[in-house]
Amino acid sequence: MSTAFTTESGSLRVERLRLLIQPAAVLVLVVGVLAWVFSLDLDDIEQRSINARTIALLTWEHVQITFVVTAIVVVVAVPLGVVLTRRWAKPAAPAVLAVANIGQAAPSVGLLVLFFLFTKQTGFWTAVLPTAFYALLPVLRNTMVGLGQVDRSLVEAGRGIGMSASSVLRRIELPLAVPYILAGLRTALVLAVGVATLAVLVNGGGLGVLIDTGYKLRRTPVLVVGAVLSVALALLVDWLGAMAEQLLGPRGLR
């Protein structure tokens, strides 16, 4: 039973099915929507948005936002999770988790807009930073849960055979927590790719540009291409996350 946001189904069967079907669905979506839209008789405005160069550029921007956000999240959340599970820092853990929880209860669009209004900046980083804050919680929480579930006797055994605290962390605790961290990472990826569609609101680029243009100029083909490509990219990114879980998890636990 899940009590937190995750796109994971919690069942091995389902994960296997998705591992197979999702890339196929991505392919169908992308090929389908592009074939459809290029077969249309597009007017000038539409042609300005729907051409190979623009689409490739916006997709690339979207991918960049997603992966930079994810990289920030990993670099911040995993060490923070490690620190907060050390004995001397444990009292601070509930407070940090509470802040992160509230961060995630906040609407992503609100964080984005607020960050823009306060900094008065637009562009790539205005989109990336609040998104990273928003996507922090899953990785942080999963890192803490993952480290917390490591059997205490293993840690003691490690210390007992003469490992230092840091090598116990590196060689026992972190490897055993990897499946949890990867699950959090996948959630962060999905959140990032989703919030990246909103980057257009702060002039951050990405496929949201097509959705926004199509909506504001009442050009449905542009809107649909932007939306469908965002969906395809999200499914692809989620699939990558699932692959990472499959491939990077420690073999002994698989």
């Binding site: 796109t7 994971e8 189904s9 919690g10 069942s11 069967r13 389902v14 099915l17 998705r18 079907i21 999702q22 669905a25 999905v190 790719v193 989703g194 919030v195 990246a196 569609t197 909103l198 496929l207 949201g208 959705i211 199509g214 909506y215 449905t220 809107l223 649909v224 932007g226 939306a227 469908v228 965002s230 969906v231 999200a234 499914l235 989620d238």
Partner: peptide, 29 residues
């Protein structure tokens, strides 16, 4: 039914993967 459960969960989790801005965009037309 294991198959039914798998399909229902896979479908609904795929829905959740869709960016909300994109889904909204698709629903507007």
């Amino acid at each position: 039914s294991p198959i039914g459960s798998t399909v229902a969960t896979a479908l609904t989790s795929a829905i959740l993967t869709i960016p909300s801005f994109a889904l909204l965009g698709l629903l507007i037309p």
